[in-house]
């Protein structure tokens, strides 16, 4: 099978690698179709593979007796599994599954670890992406504690849009409530509120973004911090 070429890659982490670092990973990257809800990493089980999203994105969730909530979103800017594996463990208590269907490049954990041991610059870049993930999770904690459900929804929609090539998202309110860590009725209220301001259009199981700039205004400083850190740390902006 022919190898994946860096010029054809969509994953921003892989694109940001030097040609030498990319060459270390290249022979090990396997394209994988990733259907909706497909489990990428099983909680508390050895991580056999990591995933560079090319199209679509992954959701990280945590759960307990009181329910389940999203604590992270990883798309073409990241590497699913980077946090546990690069920080020295083979498993994580969090669930990682496909939130938007598409394609990812998988790599065996051993192959990734070998490459990271060979190249200090590769390790540094991937660890920086872990730092951005930590910032994203912290930002989620902050806005969940502080901001209105409208702001939380606007931010989440913008984060999804950043990882998609279209303005339409396929999502039920039940699932949205999980993503926002709230009741379905609260998610429905937030959708109605943003729709009332003509920022989105909602039909059953679908949300279409109508006005990105206005959504950014609603989200205000709830959105943008991890995104700016990514630009600074990974893409040298």
């Amino acid at each position: 099978m022919s190898q994946v070429q860096q010029s054809e890659i969509r994953n921003r982490l892989l694109k940001a690698l030097s040609a030498e670092d990319f060459a270390l990973l290249q022979p090990h990257l396997q394209p994988l179709a990733t259907p909706l809800r497909h489990t990428l990493i099983v909680p508390n089980a050895p991580i056999k593979q990591l995933f560079f999203p090319e199209i679509g994105f992954s959701s990280t969730t945590t759960s307990g007796a009181g329910g389940r909530a999203e604590v992270g979103l990883i798309g073409r800017e990241g590497l699913v599994g980077a946090s546990p594996v690069l920080l020295g463990t083979d498993r994580t208590p969090h669930d990682h599954f496909v939130q938007s269907a598409g394609e990812m490049l998988s790599i065996e954990t051993g192959a990734l670890c070998d490459a990271v041991h060979q190249s200090r610059s590769l390790r540094r870049l991937l660890l920086r992406s872990v730092q951005v993930q930590i910032i994203q999770t912290a930002q989620t904690a902050f806005i969940n504690a502080t901001y209105t459900i409208e702001i939380r929804l606007a931010r989440w929609l913008l984060m999804c849009r950043d990882r998609l090539d279209e303005d339409e998202l396929h999502i039920t309110h039940e699932f949205l409530s999980l993503m926002l860590g709230t009741q379905r009725s609260s998610a429905t209220l937030a959708v109605q509120s943003l729709e009332g301001h003509r920022l989105i259009k909602a039909r059953r199981g679908r949300i279409t973004l109508l006005n990105r700039r206005a959504l950014e205004e609603v989200a205000d400083d709830g959105y943008g911090l991890p995104e700016a850190e990514y630009a600074r740390l990974i893409e040298g902006a």
Binding site: E150, S186, S193, G196
Partner: peptide, 15 residues
């Protein structure tokens, strides 16, 4: 139960 939870936890401008 829903009402109790929403009053306690949901900050929103629509209500």
């Amino acid at each position: 139960l829903l009402a109790r939870d929403m009053i306690a936890r949901t900050r929103t401008e629509i209500v």
